[in-house]
Write a protein that binds this DNA or RNA. Structure first.
Lengths: 141, 141
DNA sequence: ATTATCGTTTACGTTAACGTAAAATATGAA
DNA sequence: TTCATATTTTACGTTAACGTAAACGATAAT
């Protein structure tokens, strides 16, 4: 009943190769307060699956152009252990704002797609004009 | 019949305020070869609606974490006036790759949303635990 | 014609997000 | 235990994407 898979742990280079970032990047995120892994007796970093999931979230945010400060606030939501009610409510408001932002991103993503589709169309038109009938001219060099 | 709305033109500050960026940013994008506006007799920049649209596209890309170099290639698709077939085909391939990337972004956007929704749920649970019944204590300051 | 405002180039400054290197431990394998 | 790697901290370096300031020319309004 008291079953929690507390067994899995990763080293920093495990995480690095899994998530395809450098160890420097991971340590840097820790400096900025985005993750706080445990340590071994010898002071080496040890990561839980939970830590890993958080790192994934961070990297996802980055891929959408969020700054580390943005992300810091977004996940500041998560580890509000010692936080009082006020703080939690503030975090909730922030999270809701981010959700709205995500909705806008969805729209923008479609626009971006349309832009690219449009330019592609033009390119295809141009190329079919330049190659009136075929491209069977074998002139490789 | 020969009707093209060639009348609308913008100054750099018009564009800047419309798109909510600084003039420096616009000039910087020009330095990087992302836009090439016309000039007045006195050498001042003049932007067409088309130029404006391109800037919008650039900014959209930025909001999704694309670097200016990425974007430079993406829209390198557009102004291939002097480009030979080879080049155009390369651009097409690049555009197709970007379209795939956008599909992935869509999925990731959903994941990001779910992450935030999950953390929000936890926060709501915590707060309903901390405030057992109500919050009618009127203590504003 | 004369300001006031806007725009231009040039160039140095700034910040975020790491990269890289050094010098000293820790850990795992033989 | 000893050797080969992996990790740690510290600290300076780098790059993209602008910010900021100076010194000067262009335009618009009065």
């Amino acid at each position: 009943m008291t079953n929690k898979k507390n067994t899995i742990r990763y080293s920093i280079s495990d995480i690095a190769s899994d998530l395809d970032v450098t160890t420097r990047t991971i340590r840097f995120y820790e400096e900025k307060g985005l993750i706080m892994p445990e340590r071994t007796a010898g002071n080496q970093r040890v990561y839980t699956p939970r830590n890993k999931a958080r790192l994934k979230l961070i990297l996802r945010g980055k891929r959408f152009g969020f700054s580390l400060d943005d992300i810091s606030e977004m996940i500041g939501m998560a580890d509000s252990d010692t936080n009082e009610i006020q703080q939690i409510e503030k975090s909730l408001a922030f999270g809701n704002a981010k959700l709205k932002e995500i909705q806008e991103r969805r729209k923008e993503l479609s626009l971006l797609e349309q832009d690219i589709l449009a330019t592609r169309e033009k390119l295809i038109q141009r190329i079919t004009q330049l190659k009136p009938s075929n491209n069977l001219n074998r002139k490789e060099e």
